[in-house]
Design a protein around this nucleic acid. Structure first.
Lengths: 193, 193
DNA sequence: TCCAAACTAACGAACGATCGTCAGTTATAT
DNA sequence: ATATAACTGACGATCGTTCGTTAGTTTGGA
């Protein structure tokens, strides 16, 4: 479908150059048509951007929810580390993940409100899932602490760190080192009585 | 000085709209002159950008180095937590810090190489300082672990997390919660035998 | 089954606006 | 008078967008 080709090309250029730096003529050229033809499928640049954004959001959310659905949830060490690996995997082979990260941090100024709404929505949903898991693990005394909020936020922090490393530590070795270091310290911090 | 006013205005617009989204006419208008007048002080947009970038880098590096110079280095709990507070403080009252973060993550594509060079330089310098501190603390057995590299990278991770939170958790409360959570888990992870 | 109508997707041409940049000129201050 | 800094004016390029048109496809009624 030509419509999806346009979205994919837009995704690519938005990710590389940002909203302002990506031009419709470049995007159109990528799919072998003129920029005017984009208007047969989208109302304009903003519309194209927001549709790409929503697609990326859905993909991002779906794969993360799916992970926690299929996990047995009795072994936090395995499940949480597996989630970090999933994040890395998504980011490296999924164009949408990189796009999502960039726009979550630095959205086009005139669409900041709309983007922020989507970002908060997905962030809260993931956090709620994690918090339920941590509560169960705390109750089962397989990890230790006073409240599920602390390990949840700390783990979200580890995820953030990994994503940052994915953006600018182009060195694969350094990413692995950071992952191991953060994970080691985090796990000791929550598993110890 | 008009030259500094231009740099400050440029810093502001680069930070809000990114390199591509910031225009010389906006920047010039901010300081009350025409965009052509900028060429009396800078060779062009790239030159202006790179000068602003280097200023930001120096400010960023200087304040962090200064912190570790004036700290006594015998109490890691106080020193490290204090560093996190410094990062938050810098970010909130220093325009350059936000600019630096944005460009470190998403530099203008045609200047990516030049930006990356500066980013790696500062990153390595801070990391080297931290690693020496952690080595001393490990030797003094005030923290525990096998190698200084692990707590260093983990701490850098905490710093990254805080900066991310500074960018898009506009809620001050949420920032504080994340800081406390990350710090609590991190500190337990490295201080426990 | 056939023809006309409606719809779709792409096009060329052009719009006003803005972009970064350069050349030449004027004003200001030492 | 000399240098610096701001100006006016203009340059080609590109931006997002709109218009009217064309070709191809789908639809609906006779």
């Amino acid at each position: 479908m030509k419509l999806d080709e346009i979205k994919n090309a837009a995704l690519k250029y938005f990710t590389i150059h940002g909203y302002e730096g990506a031009s419709l003529s470049q995007i159109a050229e990528e799919v072998g048509m003129k920029k005017q033809s984009i208007y047969s499928h989208f109302k304009g640049k903003d519309d194209l951007f927001l549709q790409v954004l929503r697609n990326a959001k859905e993909a991002e959310l779906a794969s993360k929810i799916e992970y926690f659905d299929k996990v047995d949830s009795t072994d936090p060490e395995k499940d949480l580390y597996g989630f970090l690996r999933l994040v890395i995997d998504l980011f490296q082979k999924n164009e949408q993940s990189k796009f999502w990260l960039r726009m979550a941090f630095f959205p086009p100024a005139h669409l900041a409100k709309a983007v922020e709404k989507e970002v908060i929505e997905i962030e809260m949903e993931i956090q709620a899932i994690l918090e339920r898991k941590f509560k169960d693990w705390l109750d089962a005394k397989v990890i230790h602490g006073d409240t599920p909020k602390v390990p949840t936020l700390a783990f979200v922090g580890v995820v953030d760190t990994i994503m940052i490393s994915l953006v600018y530590d182009n060195d694969e070795k350094r990413l692995q080192d950071k992952l191991e270091a953060c994970w080691t310290v985090f796990w000791r911090g929550i598993s110890h009585p």
